[in-house]
Simulated assay, not measured.
Amino acid sequence: MTEIAFTKGHGTGNDFVIVADPEGELDLSDDQVAILCDRRFGIGADGLLRVVRSDRLPEGAAALAEDEHAEWFMDYRNADGSKAEMCGNGVRVFAKYLLDAGLATLAPGSTLPIGTRAGVRDVTRSETGFQVDLGRWRAESGEPTVRARGIDVARPGLGIDLGNPHIVVALASEEELEALDLSARPIVEPAPERGANIEFVVPQEPLVKDGIGRVRMRVFERGVGETLSCGTGVAATALAVREWAGPTAPSHWRVEVPGGTLAVRMFPAEDGEHVALSGPATLVYTGTVALA
């Protein structure tokens, strides 16, 4: 048995086990990650964040080639142990950990670049905690349909790629959103090659207030199940609703999830339109755990 130190953190209820491994010496198997994230037999979390220097692992080489200042790499694993490209809430929690542990600094107005499997993501401070530039997004082609428990017929979805795949589904009412049973994985046809996070959304009334769009969302994350929040899913939801709302729709959104509220902002950049996510990041407690 090996004993490792960990920190538990969350962003609007999307929770993580954080393990510091600066030199990349800890090789966690899928089963070990799944045990650590198990809510009955482990610590319990939606995923695991391994804090490792970018130059200590193969995936980090691409991050350093993109930005030589991306010293730290977020090795994100889903609760089932599978590797994931990105996690919008996880990046904010990762940045919070780096700062509190003294591994990085982030002065007001400056940027902290963090390596991920989807590329480098820049983090800045915001009024609510941290803002992460999720980079350029892409609408997927095709017309997927989604079936889920609690809705009577399959619904059309819009595919959005934010480094990780999403399918956003519009529902007709708050009642439909509440009636969803996401204890079972929604069925997507045709099945996406990499899987996808599935977001179900309803507009608030009115949709736009004081120039800000407002929606509610629930999400089923691949490799996890239903979570209280999904950062990239929140961004994908805002992008999808803006697309459906038409050219007069705003570029600022507030998305309510079961774990709280997050802000989304779309803005132009040299390589195309980017989307940013703002919200809190909280570290809850630290401890040690025996790892088989």
Results as ranks from 00 to 15, higher is better:
Met217Asn: 03
Leu277Phe: 03
Glu226Gln: 14
Val219Leu: 06
Ala263Cys: 11
Val255Ile: 13
Leu228Trp: 12
Val234Phe: 04
Ala236Asn: 09
His252Asp: 15
Val289Met: 09
Ala236Asp: 04
Thr261Glu: 15
Arg218Lys: 07
Ala240Gln: 14
Val241His: 13
Val234Trp: 08
Pro258Lys: 02
Thr227Trp: 04
Pro250Asp: 00
Leu262Arg: 13
Gly223Glu: 00
Ala276Cys: 05
Asp271Gln: 14
His274Phe: 05
Met266Arg: 15
Ala240Cys: 14
Pro247Cys: 03
Leu283Cys: 03
Ser278Glu: 13
Glu226Asp: 02
Gly260Ala: 07
Leu262Asp: 06
Tyr285Lys: 08
Asp271Ala: 15
Arg242Val: 02
Ala281Ser: 06
Trp244Phe: 00
Ala240Ile: 01
Ala240Ser: 14
Asp271Leu: 13
Glu221Trp: 05
Val275Asp: 01
Val224Asp: 03
Gly279Thr: 00
Pro247Met: 01
Gly246Thr: 00
Arg216Cys: 12
Arg254Ser: 14
Ala269His: 13
Tyr285Trp: 15
Val255Asn: 11
Arg265Leu: 11
Leu228Phe: 14
Gly279Lys: 08
Val241Leu: 15
Ala276Met: 10
Ala238Gly: 10
Gly259Tyr: 09
Ala235Glu: 03
Ala236Cys: 05
Gly260Leu: 11
Ser251Gln: 15
Gly260Val: 08
Ala276Phe: 08
Ala236Pro: 07
Val289Gln: 13
Ser278Gln: 11
Ala269Met: 12
Thr248Pro: 03
Trp253Ile: 02
Ala240Gly: 09
Pro258Gln: 04
Arg214Met: 02
Ala263Glu: 15
Arg254Gly: 03
Val241Gly: 07
Tyr285Glu: 05
Gly246Phe: 05
Pro280Val: 01
Gly246Tyr: 04
Leu277Asp: 02
Leu283Tyr: 05
Thr282Gly: 00
Thr288Ala: 13
Ala276Leu: 01
Leu277Gly: 00
Gly279Ala: 04
Pro280Cys: 00
Gly246Glu: 00
Ala276Trp: 08
Ala240Phe: 14
Thr286Pro: 10
Leu228Glu: 12
Thr227Val: 04
Gly272Trp: 08
Leu239Thr: 01
Leu262Trp: 09
Gly272Asn: 06
Ala249Cys: 00
Glu256Trp: 14
Ala236Met: 05
Ser278Cys: 11
Thr261Asp: 04
Val257Ser: 08
Ala249Trp: 05
Ser229Ala: 15
Val257Leu: 13
Glu273Ala: 12
Cys230Tyr: 09
Thr232Val: 10
Ser229Cys: 14
Leu228Gln: 15
Val284Cys: 11
Gly287Cys: 09
Ala249Gly: 01
Arg214Ala: 08
Arg242Trp: 01
Asp271Gly: 10
Tyr285Phe: 15
Met217Ser: 06
Phe220Glu: 05
Leu283Asn: 07
Ala236Leu: 06
Arg218Leu: 02
Phe267Gly: 01
Val257Ala: 09
Glu243Lys: 15
His274Ile: 07
Val241Asn: 04
Ala281Asp: 08
Met217Trp: 09
Ala245Cys: 03
Ala245Tyr: 03
Glu256Met: 13
Pro268Trp: 02
Glu226Cys: 09
Gly225Ile: 02
Trp253Leu: 01
His274Pro: 10
Arg242Asp: 00
Glu273Asn: 14
Ala263Ser: 14
Trp253His: 05
Gly233Lys: 13
Val241Ser: 07
